[in-house]
C-alpha cells in the first residue's frame, strides 16, 4: 500500500510537520512505500540554507536529507506553492520533484494523510 504524506504547515512554527516526517520514516522503516508532498506554506521546508540554531531547533532541511537513506520514495513539492513563495528549482534542496497537487496526483496513492 502506497502512502502520500502531505505537509501543508510551515516549518518550525509547530510540531505537526515533524510528526508527519516521523510517520513517513516509520512507514519506511517497515518497508511500506511512502512519499512526502509539500504544499502551501509547507514548501518552505525545502528552501536551502536554513539555520535554526538561533531559535534552538534542529534544521528541518538537514533532517529531511535523511529521507532517501531511510527509503522514502519521493519528496514532492507543489509547483504553484513554490512559485508563490519565490522558490525556484535552484533554491530547493536536492532531490525534490516539482508536481501539481491535483486529483490525478493523489489518485496514484492508496492512502493520503495530512500532517496535523
Amino acid at each position: 500500500m502506497s502512502t502520500l504524506i502531505m505537509i501543508d504547515q510551515p516549518p518550525y512554527g509547530a510540531w505537526t510537520g515533524r510528526e508527519a516526517l516521523d510517520m513517513a520514516f516509520s512507514l519506511a522503516a517497515f518497508d511500506q512505500p511512502a512519499s512526502l508532498l509539500f504544499t502551501g506554506a509547507g514548501v518552505n521546508w525545502l528552501r536551502q540554507s536554513q539555520d535554526a540554531g538561533g531559535i534552538g531547533q534542529k534544521t528541518v532541511e538537514k533532517n529531511l536529507s535523511a529521507a532517501p537513506i531511510f527509503g522514502i520514495e519521493a519528496i514532492l513539492a507543489d509547483r504553484a506553492s513554490c512559485k508563490s513563495y519565490g522558490l525556484e528549482e535552484s533554491s530547493l534542496i536536492d532531490g525534490v520533484t516539482l508536481v501539481n497537487n491535483d486529483a490525478a496526483l493523489l489518485s496514484e496513492y492508496d492512502h493520503t494523510a495530512f500532517a496535523g
Binding site: Y12, N44, Q48, S49, Q50, D51, G54, I55, Q57, G86
Partner: peptide, 13 residues
C-alpha cells in the same frame, strides 16, 4: 526577527 529569518533560510531577501 533575525533568528526566525535565518532559521527559514530567508537571509538573502
Amino acid at each position: 526577527l533575525a533568528p526566525d529569518v535565518d532559521a527559514r533560510g530567508l537571509g538573502h531577501i
